[in-house]
C-alpha cells in the first residue's frame, strides 16, 4: 500500500481462483474470484472479458485509487480533490496519470461496506453495474471511503 499522500487507496496482487462459478450468464462479462496472498484478501470482480481476458490461475495487480493523478500532492495543486475527480475529457487528452501504468481501468463508486463490528469487512463497489467485492481485514481498507468515486486499475 502506498503512503498517505498517494491517491492509491488499495494495491495488491491477486491470483484468479475461478471464473464464473455461478455459471456464465453474460456474453461479454465474467465474474472472477481471486485471492491475494500478501494481505489475505478475497476479490470478486465483474470484468469485460473482451477487453481484458483473464483465465484461471492468472495473476494480476489491482489497485484502487481515489484519483488518477500520480501523487496525492497533485490533488491539492489543482484546487481540491472534488473538482478534479469528476473532470474527464472525452478525447482522452488532458491530465494523464496513473492509468498509463495499467492495462485495464474502470471508474465507479464504493457504495457499501459490510461486516459490522467484526474483523473481516467487505467493500462493494460498482463500476457502472460491474460489481466488485473486496473482503479482508479492515486494516487494509481504511483508506477506502464509502460513497466516494474510485478508480480500479489492473495489470497482468
Amino acid at each position: 500500500m502506498s503512503g498517505p499522500t498517494s491517491n492509491i487507496v488499495f494495491d495488491d496482487i491477486f491470483t484468479v481462483t475461478a471464473i464464473d462459478k455461478d455459471g456464465k450468464k453474460f456474453d461479454r462479462v465474467s465474474r472472477l474470484f481471486a485471492h491475494s496472498k500478501s494481505y489475505d484478501m478475497d476479490l470478486t470482480l465483474d470484468f469485460n472479458v473482451e477487453l481484458f481476458p483473464l483465465r484461471q490461475d492468472d495473476s494480476f495487480a489491482l489497485a484502487l485509487a481515489s484519483s488518477l493523478s500520480r501523487s496525492g500532492a497533485g490533488g491539492t495543486t489543482e484546487d481540491g480533490d472534488d473538482k478534479e475527480r469528476d473532470v474527464w475529457r472525452p478525447d482522452g487528452k488532458g491530465h494523464r496519470g496513473l492509468e498509463d501504468e495499467y492495462d485495464y481501468v474502470m471508474y465507479g463508486k464504493v457504495y457499501k461496506f459490510d461486516g459490522g463490528t467484526s474483523e473481516i469487512v467487505t467493500a462493494y463497489a460498482s463500476f457502472g453495474g460491474l460489481l466488485m467485492s473486496l473482503t479482508g481485514s479492515f486494516r487494509h481498507m481504511t483508506s477506502i471511503v464509502l460513497g466516494d468515486p474510485v478508480y480500479l486499475l489492473m495489470r497482468k
Binding site: D86, W88, Y104, F127
Partner: peptide, 8 residues
C-alpha cells in the same frame, strides 16, 4: 464519466 477508461 465512462465506466471503463482503458483500454477504450
Amino acid at each position: 464519466p465512462p465506466a471503463i477508461w482503458k483500454p477504450v
